[in-house]
Amino acid sequence: MIRLLLIAVPLIELAGLIMLGQRVGVGYTLLWVLVSGLLGVAVIQRQGWGTLQRLQERLADNRSPFSVLKSGMWGVVAGLLLMFPGVITDALAVAALIVALRHRGQPEPGEPGGPRVYRRGDNNIIEGEWESPQGSERRDDPDSRIDKH
Protein backbone atom coordinates (compact mmCIF):
# COMPACT_ATOMS: atom_id res chain seq x y z
CA MET A 1 0.00 0.00 0.00
CA ILE A 2 2.79 2.43 0.91
CA ARG A 3 4.68 1.57 -2.27
CA LEU A 4 1.62 2.25 -4.35
CA LEU A 5 1.15 5.57 -2.57
CA LEU A 6 4.81 6.51 -3.14
CA ILE A 7 4.31 5.90 -6.85
CA ALA A 8 0.86 7.47 -7.16
CA VAL A 9 1.49 10.78 -5.35
CA PRO A 10 4.27 12.04 -7.67
CA LEU A 11 2.24 11.03 -10.73
CA ILE A 12 -0.84 12.86 -9.44
CA GLU A 13 1.29 15.90 -8.61
CA LEU A 14 2.82 15.83 -12.09
CA ALA A 15 -0.63 15.67 -13.67
CA GLY A 16 -1.75 18.57 -11.49
CA LEU A 17 1.24 20.67 -12.52
CA ILE A 18 0.61 19.89 -16.20
CA MET A 19 -3.02 20.95 -15.85
CA LEU A 20 -1.98 24.10 -13.99
CA GLY A 21 0.55 24.86 -16.73
CA GLN A 22 -2.13 24.53 -19.38
CA ARG A 23 -4.44 26.91 -17.49
CA VAL A 24 -2.07 29.68 -16.38
CA GLY A 25 1.00 29.06 -18.50
CA VAL A 26 4.37 27.39 -17.99
CA GLY A 27 6.05 30.52 -16.59
CA TYR A 28 3.54 30.98 -13.80
CA THR A 29 3.60 27.28 -13.02
CA LEU A 30 7.40 27.33 -12.69
CA LEU A 31 7.10 30.46 -10.54
CA TRP A 32 4.54 28.61 -8.35
CA VAL A 33 6.94 25.68 -7.88
CA LEU A 34 9.91 27.96 -7.15
CA VAL A 35 8.03 30.19 -4.67
CA SER A 36 6.42 27.27 -2.84
CA GLY A 37 9.81 25.53 -2.53
CA LEU A 38 11.47 28.67 -1.15
CA LEU A 39 8.51 29.22 1.17
CA GLY A 40 8.88 25.63 2.40
CA VAL A 41 12.55 26.19 3.23
CA ALA A 42 11.67 29.43 5.04
CA VAL A 43 8.90 27.74 7.04
CA ILE A 44 11.23 24.92 8.09
CA GLN A 45 13.94 27.37 9.14
CA ARG A 46 11.53 29.58 11.06
CA GLN A 47 9.69 26.70 12.70
CA GLY A 48 12.93 24.94 13.57
CA TRP A 49 14.56 27.90 15.32
CA GLY A 50 11.32 29.18 16.81
CA THR A 51 10.44 25.74 18.14
CA LEU A 52 13.89 25.33 19.62
CA GLN A 53 13.70 28.71 21.38
CA ARG A 54 10.19 28.09 22.74
CA LEU A 55 11.23 24.62 23.85
CA GLN A 56 14.21 26.02 25.77
CA GLU A 57 11.96 28.63 27.42
CA ARG A 58 9.46 25.96 28.47
CA LEU A 59 12.13 23.68 29.87
CA ALA A 60 13.80 26.57 31.71
CA ASP A 61 10.45 27.42 33.34
CA ASN A 62 9.90 23.72 34.17
CA ARG A 63 6.78 23.61 32.00
CA SER A 64 5.48 20.90 29.68
CA PRO A 65 7.11 20.99 26.21
CA PHE A 66 4.41 18.99 24.42
CA SER A 67 2.38 21.84 22.94
CA VAL A 68 5.57 23.39 21.53
CA LEU A 69 6.62 20.07 20.04
CA LYS A 70 3.17 19.50 18.57
CA SER A 71 2.93 22.89 16.86
CA GLY A 72 6.58 22.73 15.77
CA MET A 73 6.13 19.28 14.26
CA TRP A 74 3.14 20.40 12.19
CA GLY A 75 5.10 23.44 11.02
CA VAL A 76 8.00 21.30 9.83
CA VAL A 77 5.58 18.92 8.08
CA ALA A 78 4.04 21.93 6.34
CA GLY A 79 7.48 23.12 5.25
CA LEU A 80 8.38 19.70 3.87
CA LEU A 81 5.11 19.51 1.96
CA LEU A 82 5.72 22.97 0.49
CA MET A 83 9.17 21.91 -0.69
CA PHE A 84 7.71 19.12 -2.84
CA PRO A 85 6.52 20.52 -6.16
CA GLY A 86 2.81 20.10 -6.67
CA VAL A 87 -0.61 21.51 -6.01
CA ILE A 88 -1.93 18.78 -3.72
CA THR A 89 1.07 18.84 -1.37
CA ASP A 90 0.77 22.63 -1.21
CA ALA A 91 -2.87 22.33 -0.17
CA LEU A 92 -1.91 19.76 2.47
CA ALA A 93 0.83 22.14 3.65
CA VAL A 94 -1.73 24.90 4.18
CA ALA A 95 -3.81 22.49 6.27
CA ALA A 96 -0.72 21.53 8.31
CA LEU A 97 0.10 25.21 8.88
CA ILE A 98 -3.43 25.83 10.13
CA VAL A 99 -3.07 22.93 12.57
CA ALA A 100 0.31 24.27 13.72
CA LEU A 101 -1.07 27.74 14.32
CA ARG A 102 -4.10 26.31 16.09
CA HIS A 103 -1.93 24.37 18.53
CA ARG A 104 0.47 27.25 19.16
CA GLY A 105 0.07 28.81 22.57
CA GLN A 106 -2.57 26.45 23.93
CA PRO A 107 -1.96 25.74 27.62
CA GLU A 108 -1.31 22.12 28.51
CA PRO A 109 -2.98 20.36 31.44
CA GLY A 110 -1.51 21.68 34.67
CA GLU A 111 -0.38 25.00 33.18
CA PRO A 112 -1.99 28.34 34.02
CA GLY A 113 -5.09 28.71 31.87
CA GLY A 114 -5.27 25.01 31.14
CA PRO A 115 -7.16 22.21 32.84
CA ARG A 116 -6.19 21.43 36.43
CA VAL A 117 -4.32 18.20 37.07
CA TYR A 118 -4.15 16.45 40.42
CA ARG A 119 -3.50 12.99 41.81
CA ARG A 120 -5.95 10.84 43.68
CA GLY A 121 -4.27 7.66 44.81
CA ASP A 122 -2.47 6.14 41.83
CA ASN A 123 -4.56 8.06 39.27
CA ASN A 124 -3.86 11.35 37.54
CA ILE A 125 -7.07 13.35 37.14
CA ILE A 126 -7.39 16.08 34.51
CA GLU A 127 -10.37 18.38 35.00
CA GLY A 128 -12.57 19.12 32.04
CA GLU A 129 -16.07 20.00 31.04
CA TRP A 130 -18.64 17.60 29.68
CA GLU A 131 -21.86 18.39 27.91
CA SER A 132 -24.50 15.86 26.96
CA PRO A 133 -25.49 15.76 23.31
CA GLN A 134 -28.72 17.48 22.30
CA GLY A 135 -31.79 15.36 22.95
CA SER A 136 -30.08 12.90 25.29
CA GLU A 137 -31.15 12.06 28.82
CA ARG A 138 -30.50 14.34 31.77
CA ARG A 139 -27.26 14.17 33.78
CA ASP A 140 -28.96 13.21 37.03
CA ASP A 141 -30.66 10.19 35.45
CA PRO A 142 -29.25 7.18 37.35
CA ASP A 143 -29.26 5.02 34.20
CA SER A 144 -26.92 7.46 32.42
CA ARG A 145 -24.19 7.29 35.07
CA ILE A 146 -20.91 5.63 34.26
CA ASP A 147 -20.38 4.16 37.72
CA LYS A 148 -23.59 2.11 37.84
CA HIS A 149 -23.79 -0.41 40.69
Rank of each mutant, 00 (worst) to 15 (best):
A91F: 12
L4A: 15
A60T: 07
L20C: 03
L69R: 06
L82H: 02
L92Y: 01
A93H: 07
G37L: 12
W49D: 13
A60V: 06
R104W: 09
P115T: 03
D141N: 15
A15F: 08
W32N: 04
Q53W: 04
L17A: 01
Q56W: 05
G21H: 04
N124Y: 12
M19L: 14
A95F: 03
P10T: 10
L101D: 01
G113E: 02
V94E: 05
L14A: 14
G37T: 07
D90Q: 09
Q106N: 08
G37P: 01
V26N: 04
L39Q: 03
E127S: 11
S36L: 12
I2L: 15
I126E: 00
Y118T: 06
G72H: 09
T51K: 03
G86S: 07
L11H: 00
D143N: 14
P107K: 03
D143C: 14
I44F: 11
W74M: 15
I2G: 13
I98C: 12
I146S: 13
W49V: 15
R3H: 05
A100G: 04
F66T: 10
A96M: 08
S144D: 08
G21Q: 04
W130N: 11
L52S: 06
V77D: 03
A95D: 00
Q22R: 10
R138P: 07
R138F: 14
R116M: 09
L80R: 00
Q53S: 13
N124Q: 13
T29Y: 04
L38I: 04
E127Y: 00
R145H: 10
D122I: 03
M1E: 02
N62S: 14
Y28I: 02
L17T: 00
G37E: 00
W49H: 12
Q134T: 07
N124T: 05
G121D: 01
I12V: 13
L20V: 02
R138M: 13
T51I: 08
G16D: 05
S136T: 09
G50P: 08
K70G: 13
L5S: 10
Q134I: 10
P85I: 05
E127H: 01
V99N: 12
F84E: 02
V9G: 10
V43G: 13
V43S: 06
M19Q: 02
P112K: 09
L30A: 07
E131S: 11
I12D: 06
S132I: 01
